[in-house]
């Protein structure tokens, strides 16, 4: 039994990173993908914050899922998520103040991320604690992967640097360094992943249901 379960846990994580990647495939929680990905460091930090909130929210909602009446479940879930966002917000403000000054508003707004609430509603409210934990891990890692990829491309092409260190000595592409370069980076990467999906895996490409 343990082998079958291990595979399904692994499947949950893989599902979060590739199958239902929060940014590139499901296309929820797009704002930070555009707004805080101008450097790799801020992108990864935002990814860590979302990872933390997603995992903790999934665990706690899965624990209390039988105590919450179905009619008030959404407000209750949002309050649970809000609690963990407050924790993440205060922790970041305490330990990473220089970056927090730039991404603070977006960290506070994690509470309004559709991806976290939708995982709570679709998965954690119907499953035991351990699968919910792995679902949260997968979704959080998928989000981190997406933000890491976008900010990697933007910092490398826009500034020729990574994590603040100068790497390549070419003419920077201003289009990616500008604040709205995130839109172009997300659009191009999304198209690129769709192309891989269509070309090599015979998929349809994510048409992007949006909300």
């Amino acid at each position: 039994m343990s082998a079958a379960q291990k595979i399904s846990y692994f499947g949950l994580i893989r599902n979060g990173i590739f199958g239902e990647n929060p940014v590139f495939r499901v296309a929820l929680s797009l704002c930070p993908a555009v707004a805080v990905t101008n450097t790799l460091k801020s992108g990864l930090l935002m990814g860590v914050a979302v990872f933390f909130v997603q995992v903790m929210a999934n665990i706690s909602i899965s624990i209390v899922r039988k105590l919450i009446h179905a009619r008030i479940r959404l407000p209750a879930y949002i309050l649970i998520i809000g609690t963990w966002v407050t924790v993440a917000n205060l922790l970041l403000a305490a330990y990473e103040w220089p970056i927090y000054k730039e991404i603070g508003l977006y960290v506070e707004l994690i509470v309004a991320f559709a991806i976290i609430l939708s995982r709570a509603e679709l998965f954690a409210s119907k499953n035991e604690v351990v699968p919910s934990l792995f679902d949260g891990l997968g979704m959080g890692l998928g989000f981190m992967f997406a933000l890491g990829a976008i900010s990697f491309v933007r910092e490398l092409l826009g500034n020729g640097a990574l994590m603040g260190y100068h790497v390549v000595n070419t003419h920077p592409v201003l289009l990616f360094a500008l604040p709205m370069g995130g839109f172009f980076a997300v659009g191009l990467l999304m198209g690129f992943f769709n192309w891989i999906d269509i070309r090599f895996f015979g998929g349809h490409g994510a048409s992007g249901a949006g909300h």
Binding site: F183, F184, V186, G187, L188, G191, W195, G205, S207
Partner: peptide
């Protein structure tokens, strides 16, 4: 629109262009 770019990707690039105008 090229097939991989249909839907959201092209919408993102469009939004980026409008955002440039809003500067």
């Amino acid at each position: 629109v090229p097939r991989p770019f249909q839907g959201l990707p092209i919408a993102f690039i469009l939004t980026g262009l409008i955002a440039l105008a809003f500067v």
